[in-house]
Design a protein around this nucleic acid. Structure first.
Lengths: 198, 198
DNA sequence: CAAAAAATGGACCAGCAAGTCCAGACTGAG
DNA sequence: CTCAGTCTGGACTTGCTGGTCCATTTTTTG
C-alpha cells in the first residue's frame, strides 16, 4: 500500500479500506468481489488497482491491518489500566460486549485464511497483534503483583499467554456456535486463577 | 450425502472424502478445485456430482464431518480416562503433539469459513464437536473429584468450557504464528488450576 | 498560465472453475 | 441370461471475477 501523494488520494485510499472492511464484516471474504467493493466505496476498478497495485491480496492485507489495529483500540482505556480487580472486571465486560456485538464474523480470521500464510505480511500482522495483546495482559498482572493483590510466585508470562489463548478460543467458539459461554468462562476462570494465586 | 446403494459406490464415496480431506489439509480450501479432487481421487466430474448432488458445498460439508470425527478419535484413549494426574499429563502431551504435527492448516476452521454459517449443517458439526469435547473434559474433572484429587467446590462445567476455549485459542494462535507456546500455556495453566483447587 | 503528475471512469479481456450432459461400462437380482 | 439400476468417463457450457488499458478530468507545481 504505497502512500498516496496527495490528500485526496489518501482520502480515497482510506475510504476504500474502510468500505472494504465493512463489506467483509457483513458478507465474508469469500462472497466479496472487487466489484462489490468498488460499488460500496463509489470508486472505479482503476482506482482499486491504482492504490493497491498488487490487486486483491494487497487490499485484503490492508484491511487486515486496519482490523488488527481496531482490536486493541476497542479495549482501551481498560486494557491499559489493569491494576485493580475492579479494572480487570470492567475490561472483562468490555471484551464480552465487544465480541458479542461483532456477531459471528471474524474479520481477521477469514482474511487470514484467504490471504494465506504464504504472504509474509499476513502472519506478521497477527503475530504482532498477539504479542502486544499478551504484553498488555502481562503488564496488568504485574501491576496486581505490585499492589500486593497477586503473589510474586505467579508465572506472569505463561498465565498471560493462557488467558490470551482462552480469549481467542472463546471468540472462535462463539463465531462457530453463536454462544458466548466459552468466552465468559475463559475470562472468568482466568481472573479467578489470578485471585487464587497468593 | 445420500448413502450409495452398492458397496462399490460407498467405497468410491469414501475415497472422495478421504482424498479431498488430504488435499484440503495440504493446500487449503481456497486453492483446491474440484478438478484437483477429481485428479487426486482418480474419479471423474460426474462421480463427484453423482455422490454429492449439491456440489462442492456438500462435499466440503462431508469433509468437515470427516475431520470433526477425527479430532476426538485422535485424543483417545487418553481423553476417555482422565482420572489421574498422570493421565491428564499424558493427554496434554498428546494434544500438543497432535496439533504440532498437523502444522499450520486448520481443516475445520477453513472449511467452516468456506461453507459458511449459512448452511445449517456446518454450524451443527462444530457445535456437536465442542459439546462432546467439553463433556469429556468435564467427565475427567469429575473423576478427579471422585478420587479426592480435586475439591468438590470446583465449577466443573465452567472450568471445562474455559479449558476447551484455551485449547481452541492455542491452536488458532499456533496456526497463525507457528508457535505452540500459547497452546502449552493454556493446557498447563488449566491443569494447574485444577491442582490448586482443593 | 502551462505542463506534469495524479486521480478517475469504465469498457474490455482472459482464464478458471463449478456445474451439465449423455454415452457407455458395470453389477446384481430374478 | 437379461435388464434395470448404478456407476463412470470426459467433453462442453457458462458465468463470474480478477486484472488490463487507455482516455479523460482534476490537481499540483514551477
Amino acid at each position: 500500500m504505497p502512500d498516496a501523494p496527495t490528500a485526496k488520494g489518501r482520502a480515497t485510499q482510506a475510504r476504500i479500506v474502510k468500505g472494504a472492511a465493512e463489506l467483509l464484516r457483513e458478507q465474508g471474504v469469500a462472497l466479496t468481489t472487487l466489484d462489490d467493493i468498488r460499488s460500496r466505496t463509489g470508486t472505479s476498478k482503476s482506482q482499486l488497482f491504482h492504490y493497491f497495485p498488487d490487486g486483491k491480496d494487497e487490499l485484503l492485507l490492508a484491511v487486515a491491518q486496519f482490523e488488527a489495529d481496531r482490536v486493541l483500540e476497542d479495549q482501551q482505556p481498560h486494557l491499559g489500566r489493569l491494576d485493580s480487580w475492579e479494572s480487570w472486571h470492567q475490561w472483562r465486560d468490555m471484551v464480552v460486549e465487544r465480541y458479542e456485538r461483532q456477531g459471528d464474523h471474524c474479520p481477521l480470521g477469514s482474511l487470514f485464511l484467504q490471504v494465506g500464510r504464504s504472504r509474509p505480511g499476513a502472519r506478521a500482522i497477527v503475530t504482532e497483534l498477539m504479542r502486544q495483546w499478551q504484553w498488555q495482559l502481562a503488564r496488568g498482572m504485574r501491576a496486581l503483583q505490585a499492589n500486593g493483590l497477586v503473589g510474586p510466585a505467579l508465572d506472569v508470562d505463561r498465565t498471560a499467554a493462557a488467558l490470551l489463548a482462552g480469549i481467542q478460543g472463546g471468540v472462535t467458539i462463539m463465531m462457530a456456535t453463536g454462544d458466548s459461554t466459552h468466552l465468559k468462562a475463559a475470562l472468568d476462570t482466568g481472573i479467578e486463577h489470578l485471585r487464587a494465586t497468593t
